[in-house]
């Protein structure tokens, strides 16, 4: 039953016009954009894949739309806007920078900045001012150590 059904589906789809006819109209530059755009657009019905990768009927239709609009001379942004209008932001694998994505786009670089500041602090601070430990600290350390029988002070050994 299920086989018959998938066969039927196959027949229905193969009878439909496919995207191939449309890519024939594209020049090389457009063809390259066609591949790039397809890879950046998420297929709505299948699991996590782009419309370039998916064999789902809808993905095929959308590839056809991308090809047709490229041939009509539309820009990448116009094509994306066309699809976002119909299927939502979800279709964009490359979310544009906006109020809802600034954390996403800036986050790693802010973190990198913080990390580099930290590195510089470690290199400068420790290198220039190897402050001697205040004696109070040693006493506290000794007290802490006494309360934890398991923890002899290893720091001396490590520095050797």
């Amino acid at each position: 039953m299920r086989h018959a059904l998938s066969l039927l589906l196959l027949l229905v789809w193969s009878a439909l016009p496919t995207a191939f006819a449309q890519t024939a109209d594209l020049n090389d530059a457009q063809l390259e954009r066609y591949h790039e755009l397809n890879a950046e657009l998420r297929c709505v019905i299948c699991q996590n894949r782009s419309i370039a990768e998916s064999d789902a009927p809808l993905a095929k239709d959308l590839r056809g739309i991308v090809a047709r609009q490229l041939a009509e001379g539309r820009s990448d942004d116009e094509i994306k806007a066309y699809l976002v209008e119909r299927y939502g932001e979800w279709v964009l694998y490359d979310p544009p920078f906006s109020w809802s994505t600034w954390v996403l786009w800036l986050g790693p670089f802010v973190l990198l900045f913080v990390g580099l500041v930290f590195v510089i602090a470690v290199m400068r601070g420790r290198y220039r001012a190897p402050e001697p430990r205040p004696p109070l600290d040693r006493e506290r350390l000794a007290r802490v150590l006494k309360s934890h029988e398991a923890g002899p002070d290893d720091t001396d050994k490590d520095r050797s």
Binding site: A39, E40, R42, S50, G88, E89, W90, V91, L92, Y93, D94, P95, S100, T101, L104, W105, P108, F109
Partner: peptide
């Protein structure tokens, strides 16, 4: 955060 459904895919990861 109520900012809707968005996708983050290969273009993002490559750029970052």
């Amino acid at each position: 955060m109520g900012m809707g459904r968005i996708s983050v895919g290969p273009p993002y990861f490559n750029k970052v």
